[in-house]
Amino acid sequence: MDYFAQQLINGIVLGSIYGLIAIGYTMVYGIVGMINFAHGDIFMIGGFIALISFLILVSIGLTVVPVILLIVLLVSMAITALYGWTVERIAYRPLRHSFRLAPMLSAIGMSFVLTNFSQVTQGARVKPVPPIITGGYTLHEGSGGFVVQLSNVQIIVVVTTVVLLAIFTWLVARTRLGRDMRACEQDQTMAALLGVDVDRTISMTFVIGAALAAVAGMMYLLYYGLVDFFMGFVAGIKAFTAAVLGGIGSLPGAMLGGLAIGLIETLWSAYFSVEYKDVAAFSILIIVLIFLPTGLLGRPEVEKV
């Protein structure tokens, strides 16, 4: 039971990270109807930028951890958001009204560019960081000596996710930008006729998605203490799985799907086999799409005849 409780905590933390990435997928899919294959790599870039900015702050002698975290968060969000914007501008916008396969291949190409860009600029080796946030709480000490722990990092990851999700939900539900986004999702032509700047709205969607992916990248760095240039691919597919599981286009769905995937992966590793955890995640993607193609919270798609 204690072991299960510990795995549950770990799963929720991992799921929060997946959920943050999944939001980027779900938003972009909702608004331009394409899988942003480069999004996983945006997450990876976010992790790298967090790593580098953290390194700089520490080396100039800053020691107050909350200040460091806040600066790193803001810097990585800002720079990664610009990556998201640039990717859209270069690889997707020229192909927006093109054939369906062209943007998809362009996205795959962009994903290669980003992966190899960071390999070339930062090297292929895994970059470890010393634990930045230490300590935690012991929730329960079992009779067998097994301890259920909740570390401070885990608290920070979950709290940051919840806060950002709240801000973001407010953004989409209440602001002008959110309204424009929802309008573009329904009908871009009509939205444009009613004075919505479609290009800008789509750009902003990519920017927000990338910023959230940067947060995920930073959380990943804090939690696992390492980044490498190839981490975006698998994390990206899993986050996409989460977005699909939750129902693509739905923001709460993306978060819910992220948690589900995080839990499944953690529990599978804990009880079955670590080697096949990715196989489990991908199998779930296939099973979900077959039996629940609209996901948990998605809208059913009606086939017009």
Partner: peptide, 9 residues
Amino acid sequence: LMIGIRTEA
């Protein structure tokens, strides 16, 4: 950051 600074283990 990505080019200006190179990190390594």
